[in-house]
Design a protein around this nucleic acid. Structure first.
Lengths: 145, 145
DNA sequence: GACGGTTAGTCAGAGCCTCTGACTAAAATG
DNA sequence: CATTTTAGTCAGAGGCTCTGACTAACCGTC
């Protein structure tokens, strides 16, 4: 029933949810059924040389307890591993492990496919605009950058 | 650490999350602290003449059990009410109740303010493009429309 | 080098959200 | 009217997220 005047929040949520559902459904089909959206939101923020838990928590917009919980799951499932941080004995670096590296291309392919569908709907030009605008918007919406 | 190549899913999620946080923080300040994001996602899909639970569930992309759970909470808190559906004795129409109508303008004001901030960042033209593109995207991402 | 404040992370407990599966009752179909 | 479909509920389980309290290590100052 809600017509064209959906608020921007919901307007953002709808495609986000659609993308998420697709990725996780196909990831599950590919044998990565133990990978959840919440875990993925943390996982995606892991840098190439590993990232500290606190940083991941800030980036993902959750508390460090929550991030710790999710990293525990990811570690148990073999997607990430923790290594001591040479800079700081209190900290440990969360790094992507073997199974994590295996899942990435699978997810990337689904994303690519969904993006292709979106491009078919929007046209190349507007799809590019969408990405550019959203990237620009991070300046005021991403506490981590 | 992930630079400019964030995938569109995350790119959509970041501002969505930012909007959500703002709205619920300010809603709580205004005395609507018992209104949660999950409830809101259902609430927003209620039509002017009431909507059936099953329809709400589809629209919000959750199972009818989940929708039922959320509507129960909303009903207890006085945001919605259930009325028999004259068309169908099995069904009941979920309608926005007094407290729900009171919360709407408060939320709308926050949304307006956040949108103004986003417009300041993006410019009027690109903000309008963003909305137009996202609306267009619903065609392939909103199972409900 | 010891003191005091800050930071990285964990532990415990609570509440919320969401699902699957099984069910009841009314409606629609033929 | 028997069958199938649809609207919604009940029960149970698991996942996500938070607040509060804590330990250990770091950093600056005296």
């Amino acid at each position: 029933m809600p017509e064209e005047q959906l608020n921007v929040g919901l307007l953002l949520f709808i495609p986000y949810r659609a993308m998420e559902s697709r990725v996780f459904a196909e990831l599950a089909d590919a044998g990565f059924g133990d990978f959840t959206p919440a875990q993925a939101r943390v996982f995606q923020r892991i840098g190439p040389d590993g990232t500290r838990l606190t940083e991941l928590a800030e980036a993902a917009g959750v508390t460090k307890q929550t991030a710790g919980f999710l990293v525990d799951q990811l570690e148990k499932a073999g997607y990430v591993e923790r290594a001591p941080d040479p800079q700081d004995a209190r900290a440990r670096l969360v790094r992507i492990a073997k199974r994590g590296h295996e899942a990435i291309p699978v997810a990337a392919q689904v994303v690519e496919r969904v993006e292709a569908e979106w491009t078919a709907q929007l046209g190349k030009r507007r799809m590019a605009q969408l990405k550019a605008i959203l990237t620009d918007l991070r300046a005021v919406t991403d506490p981590y950058q």
